[in-house]
């Protein structure tokens, strides 16, 4: 059952993504991207990442895409009729390179990352207070506490400093966006 839902969502995500990059007008393009993001949110739920799924809908499908649509509206795009999609050899080469990229990434998938993870985090042991769990325990750990608490523990313990730095990054981005969009500097 889970796998049927996964494949339905995966096909919907891929089709929406293809439609997103082939639409002439940027507004349908943005709406197909929203559809892709909703499908990905469903897949996150299937992967037991309910908090990330909620963030995906709120931040990506909500805030970021509204920003995109707002800028499209502000610039009054998509009315001039001309298509900006490159045709002929460029599209063929792009498709070929994309297929080669899929093949390369799928080939990389076969390599083991278990040893790599152990080398990157030598001190992490299963059941440690940092909230990092061993392989296969994510579902049980998430149901043992709750979906948000399981993510919050590593975020506010192991990754506390990066978390604080992102707040500085967001402040810098907000100030930078206002300065860039001002009519006169």
């Amino acid at each position: 059952m889970t796998e049927i839902v996964f494949y339905v969502l995966a096909i919907s995500a891929v089709l929406s993504a293809i439609l997103c990059i082939t639409q002439k007008n940027p507004v349908p393009s943005a709406l197909w991207l929203v559809s892709t993001m909703f499908a990905l949110a469903g897949i996150y739920v299937l992967l037991h990442a309910q908090f990330i799924a909620a963030m995906q809908v709120l931040v990506y499908a909500g805030a970021v895409m509204v920003l995109f649509l707002f800028v499209i509206m502000l610039l009054n795009l998509g009315r001039d009729g001309g298509s900006d999609i490159k045709k002929g050899p460029v599209a063929l080469v792009a498709t070929f390179l994309g297929a080669a990229l899929v093949a390369a990434l799928v080939a990389v998938r076969g390599t083991s990352v278990a040893g790599l993870a152990d080398r990157l985090n030598p001190g992490v042991v299963a059941g440690s207070p940092l909230g990092v769990v061993a392989g296969g325990d994510v579902q049980s750990a998430a149901s043992f506490t709750n979906a948000i608490g399981a993510v919050a523990a590593p975020m506010f313990q192991t990754y506390l400093v990066p978390f604080e730095i992102t707040s500085v990054l967001l402040l810098a981005a907000a100030v930078g966006a206002v300065v860039l969009a001002k009519r006169k500097l």
């Binding site: 963030m55 990092v132 392989g135 992102t166 966006a177």
Partner: peptide, 28 residues
């Protein structure tokens, strides 16, 4: 993250933050 612990989900949170900042600055 389903196989290697919750660090992956925390990284997704950070990627979302950076993407939001990038979208704001890029659209400006």
């Amino acid at each position: 993250s389903t196989a290697h612990g919750f660090g992956g989900q925390v990284m997704v949170f950070f990627v979302m933050t950076v993407a939001a900042a990038e979208a704001a600055v890029g659209l400006a």
